[in-house]
Simulated assay, not measured.
Amino acid sequence: MGERDDMRGRLLAALDARGLLAPDGVTTVYGQPAWRPVPVGRAPQGLMDAGALQRRLVACAAGTAAMGADQCAAWVERAFSRLGVGYVSGDARGLYEGFCHLDDTGDLLVGMICAVGRAPYGPGGWDHGHVGIYVGDGEVMDCVDARVRRAPLELWLSSYGVASAPRWGWLGGIGLA
C-alpha cells in the first residue's frame, strides 16, 4: 500500500469514527466527497515554477508566527501583509466567498488561498470556515490550533472539504503570478 493510500485510509477511518462518513463510504454526511484526489494531468503549480513574488510569499508564510485557536484567516492575512501587498481582512468564510472561485486543481497556483466555507471540527470552523495558503509541490500551509503546519493537498482538500467544497483564488483579487 502506498503512502497516498495509507493517508486516504486513515482519513476515512477518522471520518467514520467521528460519524462524518455517510453509509456509502464515498461521501460525507454533508453530501461532499469523502476523498478528493488530484486528477491525473491536473496537478497544481510546483514551487520551482512559481515567480519570485509567489516564492517570497511562501517564505513570508513560513516565517509568520502561529496565531491563536480559530485564527487561520488572521495568520493568512499577516503572511500576505508581510509580503507588502496590502492587508485584506475577514474570516475564512468571507475570504472563501469573496476571493475563492476556482475548484480545478490545474488552476491552483503558488500563493493562492485555499478555503472552505464550513469545517465541521469545531464551532469556529463551522461558523467561519478554514483557510490556508497553497505553497507549491502539492502542499497547503495553514494555522490550526495555534500552530503552523504543512499538509498534503489531497489530505487538506479531503479533510476540510467534509462540509463544503474547497475552492481557491488570489487574496484580495491580487494575482502574484
Rank of each mutant, 00 (worst) to 15 (best):
E3L: 09
D5I: 01
D5N: 01
M7F: 14
R8F: 03
G9N: 13
G9K: 05
G9M: 08
L11C: 02
A13G: 05
A13V: 01
A14Y: 12
A14K: 01
A17P: 10
A17R: 14
D24I: 05
D24L: 15
V26L: 12
T27C: 04
T27M: 13
T28E: 13
T28C: 15
Q32Y: 07
W35S: 07
W35D: 11
R36C: 08
P37R: 10
V38R: 08
V38E: 04
P39S: 04
R42S: 03
G46Q: 14
G46M: 06
M48A: 09
M48F: 11
D49H: 13
A50D: 04
A50T: 01
A50E: 04
G51Q: 10
A52L: 05
A52N: 02
A52H: 05
R55K: 08
R55D: 02
L57W: 05
L57R: 02
V58A: 01
A59Q: 10
C60I: 00
A61L: 04
A61I: 09
A65Q: 07
M67T: 03
G68D: 15
A69N: 06
A69R: 02
C72P: 03
A73W: 06
A73G: 05
R82D: 08
G86Q: 07
V88M: 15
G90T: 05
D91W: 13
D91P: 07
A92H: 06
A92G: 05
R93C: 09
R93W: 07
L95P: 01
Y96H: 13
G98I: 04
H101R: 15
D104T: 06
D104E: 11
T105R: 08
T105S: 10
G106Y: 01
D107Q: 14
D107H: 09
L108Q: 07
G111R: 08
C114V: 15
V116F: 10
V116D: 04
G117H: 15
P120F: 14
P120T: 11
Y121A: 14
P123A: 11
G125L: 13
G125S: 10
W126D: 15
D127I: 09
D127P: 00
H128Q: 07
G129V: 12
G129F: 06
V131W: 06
V135G: 01
G136A: 03
D137N: 14
M141R: 12
D142L: 03
A146Q: 09
R147L: 10
V148M: 08
R149L: 12
E154S: 11
L155A: 13
W156M: 06
S159A: 07
Y160D: 00
Y160H: 07
G161N: 02
V162F: 09
A165F: 03
P166Q: 01
P166T: 01
P166Y: 00
R167T: 00
W170H: 01
W170S: 02
W170V: 01
G172I: 00
I174S: 00
